[in-house]
Design a protein around this nucleic acid. Sequence first.
DNA 1: TGACATAACAGACAAATGTCTGTTATTCTT
DNA 2: AAGAATAACAGACATTTGTCTGTTATGTCA
Lengths: 205, 205
Amino acid sequence: MAYTPPGETRKKVYEFVRERILNGSPPTVREVQRAFGFRAVQSARQHLEALVAEGKLVKDSGKARSHRLPELGRVRSPRLIPMLGRVQAGELTTALQDPGDYLLVQKSPFDDRDLFALTVQGESMIRAGILPGDTVIVRRQPAARPGEIVVALVGEEATVKRYREEQGRVELHPENDAFEPIVPRADGEPFSILGKVIEVRRSFE
Amino acid sequence: MAYTPPGETRKKVYEFVRERILNGSPPTVREVQRAFGFRAVQSARQHLEALVAEGKLVKDSGKARSHRLPELGRVRSPRLIPMLGRVQAGELTTALQDPGDYLLVQKSPFDDRDLFALTVQGESMIRAGILPGDTVIVRRQPAARPGEIVVALVGEEATVKRYREEQGRVELHPENDAFEPIVPRADGEPFSILGKVIEVRRSFE
DNA sequence: TGACATAACAGACAAATGTCTGTTATTCTT
DNA sequence: AAGAATAACAGACATTTGTCTGTTATGTCA
């Protein structure tokens, strides 16, 4: 193989490996070798070792396909989370186990709670900048603090609302004057908090 | 190992593998073996093969750590895009060359135009569900179609507005009655479209 | 009960993969 | 020009990993 200026191939190797990691299949040393047409395995290994030494990659010695992006620094670990559409009570567990689609998120390495995503249905949260069709990313947790936006199961349906406590009573507030607050216990409906909304995404295009 | 009712261990194996795949490191057969305390490799392999036969997993024969979730075959390519904060005209190129942070997005594989992200400053787009502090993901393009939300350079500042054409004249409309439309040419300010907003993200937490 | 499917085990082999030692060519630096 | 650093190569070895053949135990169901 032709000799390239110092650092040039290294950079391309890094980009190649990073791409593969983000795609979910970190390459083996020999896959890197083939991708760059090296005639020696060691050529690929040298670059990979150097990248690890530089801190741009980390790896688990001796294991296959073990290169990863460093957790600290600029890039947080990519994580795929299940994406749900409209959710009914009974279906939730099923839906989470067999979701139709996945969403890629950058997850905090310090938080190992479950994440999932769902599509917003109604217009009840418009004032909070959450529109129908938006995707909300939810962190599973059984309780919330007043003021937080939560996904709650009221009766048979999952709903996105702002969590409040008025006179020691749980209330779910819409952000739209055309809707009324929900007072779960009073309604006698089965009620539980599924989790807290930690991100909203909306795509155009 | 104790014999478990049919299907029970299978399900747990699936959940284990799925979790590992979602985390970015699909397990080897022997890692599955160890995780479940099987004394034979084949025990793990049987479960994995069955899951592939059921269509719950797919794999690349002969390769290490090659189990994948079937839906992910058509997943869009992840990309890291540079993330900018407040942007002034002259700084833009510089900012793009040395961004402080990166954002992970799932990009259409058929579109190789440049993407970048920036943080929204004002309240002018509230009615469109774009709030101050939100991150907008922008696809670089020099023109837009009426109705699309764009990032434009007006004078020294980058601004997010809805693109319109009134009587053959370009107008940048805010989505907030407290703000006035911008009519670039009339103002005599340097004007250009940086790109189109293709996604909005807002995180709480 | 007997036939059948499933679960788990045992031991081995082959391929893939990570690692090592040493060499040669090219570029960079002074 | 000389020395140092980098890039690439060659060939081998050890470990990990995927795969295979065959056996034993447990559960299912007519």
